[in-house]
Design a protein around this nucleic acid. Structure first.
Lengths: 163, 163
DNA sequence: GCAAAATTTGAAACATTATAACATTTGCAG
DNA sequence: CTGCAAATGTTATAATGTTTCAAATTTTGC
């Protein structure tokens, strides 16, 4: 079983980010999509945080590094990243997170910790299948699934300080 | 099999609304919760629309009937209704809809039609179970599930006019 | 009943999230 | 290098949600 970097477990975060960026560049190259500096920087910020990041958080971060962007700049970059499956939007938080399964065909399930805000993205074929069956039973043509689970991650369960 | 009123099928809508209100009153009575006039009116408006309704839609409706409420009035009523399981919030739409399983222990799955905006709420134990298992496999303590499926309802699939 | 306490509602201001509209710049094909 | 399309900049505004404090109402203990 391949070792997967759980967000709430220590890992080499820089490597994790640069790996995600390399993946993104490769994906965009094969799709003839332009991962421009702004788009790449937004993706990098999202990955560096490793937690769901609001559009205005990103905006503020860009501001501190001299790039005084307006909201549409960030939203457009996010739209692009969403379109190519490089980030996901967490509807229940109005926030965005890097996709850990970029390039793979998948429907994400998100486990969102209420304490530390870390998010674990799962690819859960059984869950997807059950949902697809439920939709089919109602003759409903399924386009998209939003599945977000709120709760407490393993680390915070055993940790009163909840960093 | 009991006949269920599908939102995208013709049904006696007045009866459907008054039934939901009667249920709500009963539920509040047993729980010693106060279904005040504002709360009841908000619930009624949500049921009458039978589609997801934004908080500001509700606000506007209250306005047209002389009750010039401010946003907190509506949000407080919605909080109450959510707390007692009388309405659900649809995170992907920032909107609210009447719960068709009020009083029952359930986790809702919502099938949201992109054409007509109607929403069908399903109680899907198999789906819930699969999600619970996925969370348990990650030692994640599950508190709440947001499961929203966007697509096209049966009626709109066979109907180009898409009323 | 009645006064104190708690809950609910009113009202104003404000915070956050997202988009519209239009101008400007950049990248690219011919 | 020219013209078109895509991307970005800029300003303003829309849509959604919250904080705060005051007033009214309901409940409760006596």
């Amino acid at each position: 079983m391949p070792e997967r970097a759980l967000p709430y477990r220590p890992h080499n975060h820089d490597a994790c980010v640069s790996h995600a960026l390399a993946d993104a560049r490769a994906i965009c190259r094969t799709q003839n999509a332009r991962l421009t500096p702004i788009r790449e920087r937004v993706l990098e910020l999202i990955w560096q945080s490793h937690k769901p990041l609001g559009a205005y958080d990103i905006l503020a971060m860009l501001g501190t590094e001299g790039h005084n962007a307006a909201p549409p700049t960030v939203y457009r970059a996010l739209d692009f990243l969403l379109q190519y499956g490089l980030v996901h939007r967490i509807a229940s938080l109005n926030a965005f997170i890097g996709c850990t399964h970029a390039g793979e065909q998948h429907r994400g399930t998100f486990l969102i910790c209420r304490q530390c805000s870390n998010v674990l993205e799962l690819a859960t074929p059984e869950v997807s299948k059950a949902i697809e069956q439920a939709a089919a039973a109602e003759s409903f043509r399924l386009d998209d699934i939003t599945l977000e689970v709120a709760g407490i991650c393993p680390r915070c369960q055993g940790d009163a300080s909840n960093a």
